[in-house]
Computed example of a mutant assay.
Amino acid sequence: MKNKTQLFLTAGLFLLIFFMTNAQESRSFKIFQFPKDQIPRIDGNTNDWQMVPESYIIGMDQLWEDSGKHEKVDSTNLYVQVKVGWVKGLNRLYFLYEAYDDYWDFSLSGLHNDTFELIVDGDQSGGPFIDRFHPNKQLDSLDAFFSFHGVHAQNYHIFTPAQGKDWTLVWGSQPWIKELPFSNAAYNYDFQPGESGKLTLEFWITPFDYAGHEGPVRAVESILEENKKVSLSWAVIDYDNVNNPSNNGFWNLSKEHTMYGDASYALSFKLMPLEPEFYPKLEADWSFEIIDMKNREVAFLDESKGEITSLEWDFGDGTTSNKKNPIHIYKERGKYIVVLKVSGPFGNSRRSKVWDVVVK
């Protein structure tokens, strides 16, 4: 009877862990869209982020300490929260990292440094991406490093703070991605090594589907679009003793410790549309695609925002249309001024593009 009871308890514990693990795997998060006229300035100041709703905050309640050194969060020892943002039209991810630590450890020149370790997989390709996880175990380690490490997903060891060193180690063969025009960072803090205090880190990075050691000449940026999902994860590595090589905690967003080198263990983040409060009341906008240059056939796409009751296209050749997304054939070759006018309860709006549409 005792053995059966132990068996049931063991089975119950296994099922509990199984369901908890799967629940963790299904977690997803949101990336806030900044209006294009309110792009955050990278200066270590949080004012630009005040518009971000609390629902976008990812705090310590979403992390767990997977080295077994802490049973629960102690905000008097360490507390962290992160916001992630993006801007439509830019292939950049913006981050605001705010942390309190009772002992900031950052006086040494090497890896021993309080760290925000971030991985990004812009196209959710998944899979291992560091040299020692290369599937071909016979491959020379440096060959694996230069051909594989950080190429399709990237790992940033961001030093919090960086003193007398670059703001981050890009763990891979492409350190060029930590410099402008591919990233930027700024800190705000007033403590010395070994002291307590609050740190603000503001930065942006460019995610890459391909980032080789040869530099940006062959690089492929990840395309960021509304409602697209990207994979992210991070860990907070907390050191509390400059003389102790071991850290005092590894607080992980992913359920898998090895997320640092395998993007399959990252979590899904959705690039959100603008929050309703930032919608323009009425704004005409449009794009186009030349679908047949030989026949001068052009497809127009209405991208206007707001409440619209009527619209009119002027194709610049003396013809118009009231269709939302018309296809127009130009009879003559030339450069055209195309205008879209929209109307609604909040007035009128016009978007003109001068000589964007050129057919031959």
Rank of each mutant, 00 (worst) to 15 (best):
F346N: 13
F250K: 02
N227G: 04
L340I: 09
A144V: 02
N295H: 10
E117A: 12
Y210G: 01
H157W: 08
H149C: 14
A11S: 05
R92E: 12
H70M: 01
W251Y: 07
V338L: 11
H134M: 07
Y94S: 03
M1T: 05
K323I: 12
D123F: 01
V87Y: 09
P161L: 06
D61C: 01
I237Y: 05
K88F: 05
T21H: 09
D140Q: 09
E65W: 03
K324H: 12
L16P: 02
N184A: 13
V151M: 06
H149M: 08
S268T: 15
Y56Q: 00
G110L: 10
I31E: 10
T319D: 11
A162P: 08
L340A: 07
F346E: 14
N322D: 13
D66H: 13
S246M: 11
D105E: 14
Q174G: 00
Q6T: 05
N295D: 11
F288A: 01
L142F: 14
G85R: 05
W286E: 08
N45K: 11
A219D: 01
K323H: 14
F145N: 03
F133A: 10
E289Y: 01
K294C: 00
K165V: 14
S109L: 12
A219Q: 03
L199W: 08
N184R: 14
Y100M: 00
P35S: 04
S352H: 03
I223T: 11
F250A: 04
S254Q: 05
N227D: 15
S222C: 01
A266M: 13
I237V: 15
N188L: 04
F300I: 03
D240S: 14
P135S: 08
Y330G: 02
R41C: 09
E283I: 10
P276L: 03
L169R: 03
S26K: 15
Y260E: 00
T76Q: 13
I57T: 13
D140N: 15
G212W: 04
F203D: 04
V358H: 07
D356C: 06
N295V: 02
W167T: 01
L340S: 07
D114V: 02
Q62T: 04
S352P: 07
G172D: 00
L63M: 08
T319L: 11
Y336G: 07
K360T: 14
L111Y: 13
L13R: 04
S254G: 03
F32E: 09
F95P: 02
S233L: 08
N248R: 09
P193E: 01
K69Y: 13
E25F: 11
R132K: 13
I291E: 09
H112P: 01
K69F: 11
T319Y: 12
D143L: 12
M51P: 00
A235V: 08
E202P: 08
D240E: 14
F14T: 08
Q163M: 14
S55N: 12
F315P: 10
M60N: 14
V220S: 06
K331W: 11
K72H: 06
Y100E: 00
L253M: 08
F191N: 03
N243K: 15
Y187F: 15
R350G: 00
T46D: 07
V342P: 06
G197M: 04
F278E: 00
R132E: 14
P135K: 07
D209Y: 06
G249C: 05
N322S: 14
Y260K: 05
A263D: 02
A185M: 13
D121N: 12
D238R: 13
